[in-house]
Design a protein around this nucleic acid. Structure first.
Lengths: 139, 139
DNA sequence: AAGTATTTTAGGAATATTACTATTTGGAGG
DNA sequence: CCTCCAAATAGTAATATTCCTAAAATACTT
């Protein structure tokens, strides 16, 4: 997704387009793969020295809630990405490698849940965990 | 699940049954619903003063990896539970209420993934997020 | 262009979580 | 019961994440 598209989404969701948000999103789009909040903050600091880590966290959280950014809960720190299309991840419990997975069988379930529980489902968080090929071989 | 069953699982998985683990699992089973690591630590400290929080975290993580304990990634802190049967959760993004969901359509996908990517899937982590009935009504 | 209501931010404090290491301990084998 | 080794623990240091508040910025209205 392009930076401008993300900003447009913000606007249409009634949120303000601040310089910080622009910088964070541009930093994020510069990485092609999932990165830590710390690295996003470092990258954003190049364009805007002094931007606070709290701002980075707060905005990443907001973008996750609106479904624009995806958070991967890894061991030492969460990873974030600007996804191309809806997909999920497999995380190796040994080496923490992250693989992308295209399939997603959940849209039907979401509608079911909404009906059954009166819960308004905004999205879901799905990760598979296990052993990647390399770690599986080495024991 | 009973405490003894969890300990038996540990044994058969080749892990040691320590007094700390017994205490942690008993603490966990005393709560009927998901609780924070902090509360588990406090509860465990009653039976074993001086038990370190690191031990609690380390063991909760281990139990999660073996599928015995379930971790719910909530806002300020993760929640843990000894689940009755395989199920998932819906977390309200506004009030953080947690609802249990029985359905799980993923066993088939796990096998697919294993074949396609050579990834040995040990489990998955699935959470729906959105607005609970109360928060949905109040806007 | 200026005024205003609301959202957002910086900065630092408070929590939550993980990493590291010397020491201890569970349990297998004798 | 005693010895040994791998696994586990306590304690502490280091990170990661969230909370809190006064001040600043955005978008809207005039």
């Amino acid at each position: 997704m392009e930076t401008d598209e993300v900003l447009a989404r913000l606007r249409s969701a009634g949120r303000k387009v601040t310089e910080q948000r622009r910088v964070i999103i541009e930093a994020l789009s510069r990485f092609g793969s999932p990165v830590t909040a710390r690295r996003i903050h470092r990258e954003a600091s190049k364009a805007m020295p002094g931007i606070s880590h709290d701002t980075v966290y707060r905005n990443l959280e907001m973008l996750c809630k609106t479904g624009t950014v995806v958070q991967i809960r890894a061991k030492g720190a969460s990873l974030f990405e600007l996804p191309e299309g809806h997909h999920h991840h497999m995380v190796c419990v040994k080496c923490s490698k992250v693989l992308c997975v295209e399939c997603c069988p959940l849209s039907f379930e979401e509608k079911m849940l909404a009906r059954q529980h009166g819960f308004r489902v905004l999205g879901h968080h799905l990760e598979f965990y296990g052993l990647c090929p390399a770690c599986n071989d080495t024991g």
